[in-house]
């Protein structure tokens, strides 16, 4: 009994410590499946809390029985000789097995019900957005029957609040996975396949998510933002994106445009209304209107943009964008020009 009295409190302490840790840790963050902003994530979150409760109960019950069995067996002078106790053990195992089957069946039913609910999102007048994963940024195309109304942008997806959105995913290079935890689960973008997923944001906000399938050197810095805003704001944004890039309005921005067009930038980037029509990198037609740079790596400020242009490899080692060697004035002008492209 000497050892039992030492083991028992330490076991209890462990349980208490674990419970405290659990309580301290579940604090919903911003980019969190615990903090749903749409019906899909909401459904899954409900399922999660149900499963967490059931799973915790299972763990606690098994631990209690284990502790009880240990205590019982330490009070005995010697083990029960077979077959003594077999009948009660058999009862215990059968009841345990039956409960396991019941609980698992409940899990299964809950999962299927949630799956059906996820598929039942009303889809009338859906906005269709094509998301193409590249190493390591997101190309975003808004699909419209009128070719002139197709908007192309990158890394930031504006959607109207309360309306269904179909995300049509694909990838020209490796497998990526599109995931916005606040809105819905993830969907892989597999080369040679087109995938589709639906989501709806019921609250305005900026929802962040990272590429979820390992896609190479900069898998870590491949962030997408979904910006949910009321319909009027969305329409305003959409129309602004439809327009050609703003022409330079002063000598500095004019010089900036000149620097851009004469450098290697044009090989990969597009600025509508100019000769720059590269498609290897994200379009820059309205880069000044974005919140972040380098696929969510940096806030979009002139300083960060300059740092990014000069030495992208320092910020995102392995990125396809090469460093540029230009003098201070050119850089200044280029940054001013790009930031003016609202």
């Amino acid at each position: 009994m000497r050892q039992s009295s030492r083991l028992w409190p330490s076991f209890r302490r462990t349980v208490i410590a674990l419970t405290a840790l659990l309580g301290a840790c579940i604090v919903p963050g911003n980019e969190s499946a615990f903090n749903p902003a749409g019906p899909q994530a909401g459904r899954i979150s409900t399922l999660w809390w149900f499963m967490l409760a059931a799973a915790t109960a299972v763990w606690v019950v098994v631990m209690v029985f284990l502790a009880w069995a240990v205590r019982r067996s330490r009070q005995r002078d010697q083990a029960l000789r077979e077959p003594a106790g077999d009948a009660s053990m058999q009862r215990g195992v059968v009841v345990g097995g039956a409960l396991t089957v019941l609980i698992l069946t409940a899990f299964l039913i809950a999962d299927i019900a949630t799956g059906r609910a996820l598929g039942a999102l009303p889809r009338k007048n859906a906005l269709r957005v094509e998301v193409i994963g590249h190493q390591w940024w997101w190309e975003v195309n808004y699909i419209d029957p009128t070719p002139g109304r197709i908007v192309t942008t990158a890394n930031e997806i504006h959607i109207p609040v309360g309306e269904p959105v179909q995300i049509i995913g694909s990838s020209p290079d490796v497998i990526h996975s599109f995931w916005i935890p606040n809105l819905h689960g993830k969907k892989d973008l597999v080369p040679g396949h087109t995938t589709s997923t639906w989501l709806r944001a019921d609250k305005p906000g900026v929802y962040r998510g990272q590429c979820a399938e390992f896609c190479g050197a900069q898998h870590s810095k491949m962030t997408a933002l979904v910006i949910a805003e009321p319909r009027p704001q969305f329409d305003a944004w959409y129309n602004a994106q439809l327009a050609s890039a703003r022409p330079p309005s002063n000598p500095v921005t004019a010089r900036g445009q000149d620097v851009f067009l004469k450098s290697s930038c044009v090989v990969c980037h597009t600025i509508s209304g100019t000769l720059a029509a590269g498609t290897l990198g994200p379009t820059l037609s309205h880069v000044g209107s974005r919140l972040t740079l380098a696929s969510g790596s940096l806030p979009n400020t002139p300083g960060n943009l300059a740092a990014w242009i000069v030495d992208p490899q320092r910020i995102k080692p392995g990125t396809r964008m090469p460093s540029s060697n230009m003098n201070q004035a050119d850089l200044q002008a280029l940054v001013t020009y790009l930031e003016s492209l609202k």
Binding site: V62, A69, V70, S73, R76, G85, G92, V93
Partner: peptide
């Protein structure tokens, strides 16, 4: 469950 039953019936 079988292990827990064994522990219960034994002298641990």
């Amino acid at each position: 469950f079988c292990w827990i039953a064994t522990i219960w019936a034994g002298r641990t």
